[in-house]
Write a protein that binds this DNA or RNA. Structure first.
Lengths: 220, 220
DNA sequence: TAGATTGTTAATCGATTAACAATC
DNA sequence: TAGATTGTTAATCGATTAACAATC
């Protein structure tokens, strides 16, 4: 390939590691709020119930954040992980689907604290158009494309039934959306480079159901 | 140990496998609805974008559901996976927290189709007590324990802020709940045998944020 | 029977844990 | 300096994939 060596590929980090970062971030945030200044991988491992080895391996994928004989500075590590997770940027998101789940997500103010800004909401139900969730207007579906382009939207939250989800996702892809946070119970096939994160609630509930049955095979 | 050999341990199945079962179940349900009678691991693997080998390995943890030269009967396999997931049983659940998320979950009727029955809702806000979600009454928090014992509740859905979640979880454990579906952004430490399934929405969003940044390192 | 496809064993790959030299 | 603890290499473990004999 011509571009060989031109684009510096970051080392590919496994999704297993990525998936643990938010949890580290959460624990470090709590330690910070408690005024803890430094922590060793050993102490953190006891708190989080993982191995110290895993913590050190995970962090060293991104750089040497600690200091021998000292451990990790809590506030520094907290901010570094935040940067790794992209929380130093602002992300504008829209919610598609103004049903119960969509409205619940729109009302969830904690996202704003992490730089995720709720910009718009869309629904196909004419009765909902014009109503507001935390000041954000519900707009008709045919305005999605224009809105995304005009308002620098990064993330579309898909909170509609699965019947319409695939078609809407395809439309979103055409607008150049970067990422879809998918709550519909269907797998979206999007082109390379567009990020999809699934929250399949019923899958999660089924997993719980399996584990209940396994723990109490005879019904009680 | 005295009980050695008395209790027949089922082979321990990894959570990686369990986590894939609901997805198999979903695809088989769709195939069934489309009238497809049988499918080979090869064809299913192309549909689901996993290896045929993984499908066969996964299923064979639970038994030989297929037939050489034929493949798998869709309807049969669908029902068998349903049984493995415990969907042949009824699960009664309550929701704790009648905020936006709790109400959205209470209104989600698809859970009923899978045998998860919404029985009660609890909140500490007196203004909400007595209101109803799909006919289910919102009750005060101090009635939780009595209600769980009287109504054969299996699952408590925790849809409250993290500040109160740990204390409520401890209370639930004392009532003998089997399982907690935890939407609070905190890890619950419960005794062995009580199942916890976490839905950490902000963790999920942070993962998405990481992947956006990685795909577009320079902001666009 | 011949062809298809499973169930299952073996090989590979990747992730986790252990160990320890480097270094603060 | 001595003790503590990281960063990193090596060993282990587990999960995924490949291969193929069994069998419908």
């Amino acid at each position: 390939m011509l571009s060989e060596g031109v684009i510096l590929e970051e080392k590919e980090i496994s999704q297993a590691v990525i998936g643990r970062l938010p949890r580290y971030f959460r624990y470090l945030g709590e330690l910070k709020d408690e005024g803890v200044e430094r922590i060793s991988s050993q102490d953190l491992s006891e708190l989080m119930k993982v191995t110290a080895s895993q913590i050190r391996q995970d962090l060293n994928n991104f750089g040497g954040f600690g200091q021998q004989g000292y451990g990790y500075n809590v506030e520094y590590l907290y901010h570094e992980i935040g940067k790794i997770l992209g929380l130093d940027r602002q992300h504008n998101f829209i919610i598609i689907g103004a049903g119960n789940l969509g409205r619940a997500l729109g009302n969830y103010i904690n996202f704003e604290k992490r730089g995720f800004i709720f910009r718009g909401m869309f629904d196909e139900n004419p009765a909902l158009i014009g109503s507001r969730i935390r000041g954000v207007k519900v707009m008709p579906m045919n305005e999605i494309e224009h809105f995304i382009r005009e308002n620098d939207i990064d993330i579309a939250v898909l909170a509609i039934p699965k019947s319409g989800a695939v078609a809407v996702a395809e439309k979103l892809v055409r607008t150049g959306i970067h990422a879809i946070w998918n709550f519909a119970h269907v797998d979206l096939n999007v082109p390379e480079g567009i990020q999809v994160e699934n929250v399949h609630l019923s899958d999660s509930l089924m997993k719980l159901s399996y584990n209940i049955r396994k723990a109490a095979p005879n019904g009680e």
